[in-house]
């Protein structure tokens, strides 16, 4: 499990959002990926090819593994999106549905 260092500046625990309906608390400057990892979520999606579980690898927008559905939009690189209060994040299963 990832843990937060206690000795950090006072932007901690400011942002509340949900992952798969579960309430999560994050720091204001967290990326969605970092906040998800901090809350214990390691598996972000299952692969679109074989369905095997996948999670973040590079944290810098290069690997495209950390894809999550954010506020209804699928395949967002979670490490490149900053958390926002009330954000609705969902882990993904295989190929995301796009047709209404």
């Amino acid at each position: 499990m990832f843990r937060r260092l206690r000795d950090r500046t006072a932007t901690s625990g400011d942002v509340a959002f949900t992952i798969d309906g579960k309430l999560v608390s994050a720091d204001a400057e967290d990326s969605v990926a970092a906040a998800a990892l901090a809350s214990g979520v390691l598996r972000f999606r299952t692969s679109t090819v074989s369905g095997e579980p996948r999670g973040p690898y590079c944290m810098m927008g290069v690997c495209f593994e950390c894809l999550l559905t954010i506020d209804g939009r699928p395949n967002q690189q979670a490490c490149m999106v900053k958390v926002r209060p009330g954000m609705r994040v969902e882990t993904q299963s295989g190929k995301p549905s796009v047709a209404p």
């Binding site: 990832f2 967290d30 970092a34 906040a35 990892l37």
Partner: peptide, 9 residues
């Protein structure tokens, strides 16, 4: 990155 940006270990 997780350490620098989010103070996580």
């Amino acid at each position: 990155i997780l350490l620098k940006t989010s103070g996580m270990v």
